[in-house]
Measured scan of single mutants.
Amino acid sequence: KKKYVIKVYFEDTGKEVEIEAESKEEALEAAKRLAEELGLKIKKVEIYP
């Protein structure tokens, strides 16, 4: 089964997080949740198959 690796870059902090997920949708949801939890804004998202 294919996994996606999503790199999320946050504004202000210069922080980046990698998330593995089964689908792009799932990964983007996780990225949004994470940003909310951390109180950060997402600057850029890169998706690698």
Rank of each mutant, 00 (worst) to 15 (best):
K1G: 14
K1C: 13
K1D: 07
K1T: 12
K1S: 07
K2W: 14
K2F: 13
K2V: 09
K2C: 11
K2P: 02
K3A: 12
K3G: 03
K3H: 10
K3W: 15
K3T: 10
K3V: 06
K3R: 07
Y4I: 08
Y4C: 02
Y4V: 14
Y4K: 01
Y4N: 01
Y4G: 00
Y4L: 03
Y4M: 03
Y4P: 00
V5Q: 07
V5Y: 10
V5S: 08
V5I: 08
V5F: 10
V5T: 12
I6T: 02
I6C: 02
I6Q: 00
I6R: 00
I6F: 13
I6E: 00
I6S: 01
I6Y: 15
I6L: 09
I6H: 01
K7D: 01
K7V: 04
K7T: 04
K7R: 14
K7Y: 05
K7W: 11
V8I: 12
V8F: 13
V8T: 01
V8W: 04
V8L: 07
V8D: 00
V8K: 00
V8Y: 06
Y9W: 15
Y9N: 03
Y9M: 10
Y9F: 07
Y9A: 03
Y9D: 01
F10Y: 03
F10Q: 00
F10K: 00
F10E: 00
F10D: 01
F10T: 01
F10R: 00
E11A: 13
E11N: 14
E11Y: 15
E11T: 11
E11K: 14
D12Y: 14
D12F: 14
D12W: 15
D12H: 12
D12G: 12
D12C: 10
D12A: 10
D12I: 14
D12Q: 10
D12V: 09
T13F: 09
T13E: 10
T13M: 09
T13Y: 12
T13K: 12
G14V: 14
G14P: 06
G14C: 09
G14H: 07
G14Q: 10
G14K: 10
K15W: 06
K15V: 09
K15Q: 07
E16Y: 11
E16A: 12
E16F: 12
E16M: 07
E16V: 05
E16P: 06
E16H: 08
E16I: 13
E16L: 07
V17I: 10
V17A: 06
V17C: 06
V17Y: 09
V17K: 04
V17N: 02
V17E: 08
V17D: 02
V17P: 02
E18K: 04
E18T: 07
E18C: 10
E18Q: 12
E18D: 11
E18G: 04
E18N: 05
I19C: 05
I19Y: 12
I19N: 01
I19M: 11
I19K: 01
I19E: 01
E20S: 06
E20N: 06
E20W: 12
E20H: 11
E20V: 11
E20C: 08
A21K: 08
A21Y: 05
A21H: 08
A21M: 07
A21F: 06
A21P: 00
E22C: 12
E22H: 11
E22Y: 12
E22I: 04
E22W: 14
E22P: 10
S23V: 03
S23Y: 03
S23C: 04
S23Q: 03
S23I: 03
S23E: 06
S23M: 02
K24I: 13
K24S: 08
K24G: 10
K24T: 13
K24C: 12
K24R: 07
K24E: 13
K24M: 12
K24A: 13
K24H: 11
K24V: 14
E25S: 04
E25F: 09
E25R: 06
E25A: 10
E25P: 05
E26N: 08
E26Q: 09
E26L: 11
E26H: 12
E26G: 13
A27P: 01
A27I: 04
A27D: 00
A27E: 00
A27F: 02
L28I: 10
L28P: 01
L28E: 07
L28Q: 08
L28S: 05
L28K: 07
L28G: 05
E29T: 15
E29P: 02
E29S: 13
E29I: 12
E29A: 15
E29H: 13
E29G: 08
E29M: 15
A30E: 08
A30F: 14
A30H: 13
A30W: 15
A30L: 15
A30N: 10
A31H: 01
A31G: 05
A31I: 05
A31T: 03
A31R: 00
A31F: 12
A31V: 11
A31C: 05
K32R: 06
K32H: 13
K32D: 06
K32L: 13
K32Y: 15
K32F: 15
K32T: 10
K32S: 11
K32V: 09
K32E: 07
K32N: 12
K32M: 14
R33P: 00
R33N: 07
R33I: 07
R33G: 05
L34R: 08
L34T: 07
L34C: 02
L34K: 09
L34V: 13
L34I: 07
L34P: 00
L34W: 13
A35G: 07
A35D: 00
A35L: 03
A35N: 01
A35E: 04
E36T: 14
E36C: 10
E36I: 14
E36Y: 15
E37P: 01
E37R: 15
E37L: 13
L38E: 03
L38F: 11
L38S: 07
L38P: 01
L38M: 13
L38T: 05
G39N: 10
G39I: 02
G39Y: 02
G39V: 03
G39S: 07
G39D: 03
L40D: 02
L40N: 02
L40A: 03
L40W: 15
L40R: 06
L40P: 01
K41R: 13
K41C: 09
K41M: 09
I42S: 01
I42Q: 00
I42Y: 02
I42R: 00
I42L: 08
I42K: 00
I42M: 03
K43Q: 08
K43R: 14
K43G: 07
K43C: 04
K43H: 08
K44M: 08
K44C: 04
K44F: 08
K44D: 03
K44Y: 09
K44G: 04
K44N: 11
V45Y: 11
V45A: 03
V45T: 05
V45Q: 02
V45L: 04
V45E: 01
V45C: 05
E46S: 09
E46H: 13
E46C: 05
E46K: 06
E46A: 08
I47P: 03
I47M: 13
Y48K: 05
Y48T: 13
Y48M: 10
Y48F: 14
Y48Q: 09
Y48C: 11
Y48D: 05
P49Q: 15
P49D: 13
P49L: 14
